[in-house]
């Protein structure tokens, strides 16, 4: 019996249902084929926290997010959002995919993309009201993209597109935000704009979980961290879990000692 099958048998451990906990993951295993991409991960994200998921390329960070959201099937384990399975609390969870897997030539304008965040709350024929459009505009305003509302989505730069997908998530008015590398490939101005939106979300008591690739900013941006490389290496407050032993273990030889020493300097 392979490892994967073993975990499939006993991975379904029963965790406590906690309606306060935005996301509790127990024994989550996902595999494409018979090599696991995520293996037996348990973790809990706290309410009102900013959490970074950190790990090397191919560590299974995106897979973890997709599995808890039901985009890829779980082989074993479970994820509870606010103590409930995802299906019953969809409206409280918003997701921003990694460099969204979308058709860029699609005939939608920026404002239409943001309106998609509201589709679940539209009436039976899916007609949008003035109120919906005003709300979508407000979300674009928050990410500094109001002037682009009528552009076709493919005519934006990568960083601008990223802002639009954040605005779409904002329109959902969720309590938990799952973002897959929201800061990948954006310039300093966009990074500042996105981070200020995320900090606002946090100060409103919402929970923000980001897959994050820039180790240098983990300390300054986030409260908690989850280090994974297929398996969970460590999780908890950045101050304790984000140490060089754990980093070395996550990245293996790939992360030189000097690099880690640099990270030890508290970022400004």
């Amino acid at each position: 019996m392979s490892d994967v099958e073993l975990i499939a048998r006993d991975g379904d451990r029963v965790g406590r249902k906690d309606p306060e906990c935005p996301l509790a993951i127990d024994g989550l295993t996902v595999s494409y084929g018979d090599k696991p991409a995520v293996f037996s991960v348990d973790t809990r994200f706290g309410k009102g926290r900013m959490v970074a998921i950190v790990g090397p390329n191919g560590a299974g960070k995106s897979t973890l997010m997709k599995a808890v959201l039901g985009i890829v099937p779980k082989l074993a384990g479970r994820a509870l959002f606010f103590g409930e399975p995802f299906e019953s609390v969809r409206s409280r969870v918003a997701y921003v995919p990694q460099r969204a897997s979308v058709d860029w030539d699609f005939p939608v304008r920026v404002i239409d993309v943001v309106l998609m965040g509201l589709y679940r709350s539209l009436g039976i024929f899916g007609m949008t009201s003035k109120k919906d459009i005003a709300k979508a505009h407000a979300c674009l305003e928050r990410v500094g993209m109001a002037d682009f509302a009528r552009r076709q989505i493919g005519q934006l730069s990568g960083g601008q597109q990223q802002r639009v997908f954040l605005a779409r998530a904002l329109a959902q008015d969720a309590d938990l935000y799952l973002l897959d590398e929201p800061l990948a490939g954006v310039d300093a101005a966009t990074e500042r704009a996105i981070m200020s939106v995320l900090k606002d979300l946090k100060s409103e008591g919402r929970t923000v979980v980001c897959v994050h690739h820039d180790l240098a900013t983990v300390r300054s941006y986030f409260d908690d961290v989850l280090l994974i490389n297929v398996r969970k290496i460590a999780d908890g407050p950045v101050a304790s879990a984000f140490n060089d032993r754990n980093l070395q273990q996550t990245y293996g030889g790939r992360l030189g000692a000097t690099h880690i020493a640099e990270l030890q300097q508290p970022a400004g």
Binding site: K66, G70, I71, P97, S101, V102, D103, Y119, F125, G126
Partner: peptide, 22 residues
């Protein structure tokens, strides 16, 4: 008329559609 919204999201961004319950 009934389905166009979900069809649009699925065609534009299937993974996101899945998280919306479509």
């Amino acid at each position: 008329l009934l389905l166009h919204r979900r069809m649009i999201v699925v065609a534009f961004d299937p993974q996101y559609a899945e998280t919306m319950g479509f």
